[in-house]
Design a protein around this nucleic acid. Sequence first.
DNA 1: CTGTTAGCGCATTCAC
DNA 2: GTGAATGCGCTAACAG
Lengths: 300, 300
Amino acid sequence: MKVVEELSFNPNSVARSLVMRKSRLIGVLIPSMDNKFISDFVNTLEKELFKCNYTTLVCNTKRDDDIEMDFLRLLKDKYVDGVVMMASNPKPHQIEFLEKMAIPAVFAGHTDSTKQFSSVNIDHCQAMYDATRYLLQNGHCKIAFFGGPDIYQQIVERLSGYKQALADYGIEYDESLFYYAHDYDIENGYESGMKLFQRKDRPTAVCCVSDMVAIGAIRAAEDNRLSVPEDISIMGFDDISIAKAYRPGITTIRQPIHELSVQAAQMLLSQIQQKENYVRETRILPHEIMVRGSCMAVSN
Amino acid sequence: MKVVEELSFNPNSVARSLVMRKSRLIGVLIPSMDNKFISDFVNTLEKELFKCNYTTLVCNTKRDDDIEMDFLRLLKDKYVDGVVMMASNPKPHQIEFLEKMAIPAVFAGHTDSTKQFSSVNIDHCQAMYDATRYLLQNGHCKIAFFGGPDIYQQIVERLSGYKQALADYGIEYDESLFYYAHDYDIENGYESGMKLFQRKDRPTAVCCVSDMVAIGAIRAAEDNRLSVPEDISIMGFDDISIAKAYRPGITTIRQPIHELSVQAAQMLLSQIQQKENYVRETRILPHEIMVRGSCMAVSN
DNA sequence: CTGTTAGCGCATTCAC
DNA sequence: GTGAATGCGCTAACAG
């Protein structure tokens, strides 16, 4: 130990990885970086894993399936000890790859319906159901939906929650009130809004798949001389930090981002420790509606 | 080659790194993740490096010097081929470490005043000078400054640009109009605003170190029944995407984020290729003022 | 309990 | 040209 100090020896992690087939590295696949929801998740995850001496390798897949698979291979090559998958909904070839290579993995914000890997998620369908019901309970009966890319299971589930709530309140689903976009950023919400708000028969409320879409929608409403929430109520989803700071404050569904992250870390860690004995599980965490200024009751 | 196909052989990158002392990995040190400015930078950087078959290892230092050094050591251990330093202003022990370990490095958004490493940056002093001058030219003569942590060289430079502009317009610097905060997020701008806007002798404008601070300031103004920009003009800095979408649109200084990133990548790449022959250089890129709704002229 | 050795999977070098 | 040796820095297994 004295000699270690004297020569300031420090073990070479690459050589160690080579023989150990371990790296104390955890890969995290994320769909993008420009989103408070994701950065909060990663921040918490890093903190949790760091406690156990793991370093996080953040992989931004930019929502590209090929990049996703490239990263998975890279991570395998690097002998990562585990992977947190939050980039997209589980795909068969990914599951197969992870299974074959015996890489511990956890899906976060997504549910592996094959149950081959653990997942932590919220009930996206129920969450959007609650959002829609909140509007219905406040007297809205004509509610538009600004959707996102339907390649995401979560988005599909959210839409079905919306439809379910309408059905439960005896309102027929009107396809002309559904606006599809290829992404869920400000621009998409703005474009959908510009189309919708120019209609004579505009609704009294709109449900958005994300807070960013909601911000775009609010901008579009204002550009059409509509006041939010007086003329139109706008509901967000995610509760990113800007949702509270925006004017008006955005009424939205909060995902328990911190809990999602902590549990993902813990599940992955115990999977790494317990190896074959690990019992996979699917956890659904509670969401919460954040009532702020972008929605109001309508008098019938 | 036939056999390679048949056995679907794929070279082991860890073993390769061990013997080559290279990894085709580039480390990127960032101060946080929750910022469009940073995520845009990283996105572009990844794209540029990916073209040359390099993978990016994103390290979130959370503005902690120790974490920063830990990552630097980790990166050295992993035999990264180079490092992009955008987490904080260059510190002597980092420079020494990089120099000693012969790790190619580039500072982005920061300038290495020792000139031992290359840098790409904007002129933060001139940028804030221009922002302040814009307000002065629009008739404002009492302008507050919402500053951030002075541990950042950029922030110090921005403050000095503000002071310089005032001086050039024959206005004495009034320390009571300078509000210091430990971070530059929405909350800090809000707190500074709540203090300032309750004063009887409030100014007609405020320069903020970041767009997030500006958003907080706008919120505070509104909570004090002040209209932006009618009662008070608020100037941002960075031009993050929300600056345009916010209401009112935030007049701000745009950093050429894409160019910053592309040039950082190119400089690092040529440094890696040219080895000892590489000539270090310091590049300063032009900024731009984005005129939007949060500032207006004042009639004297 | 200390000392030696084999081998992780590659690139490099030298011999053929 | 092809083939066999050496070593990158470590861990694990084994011997003394």
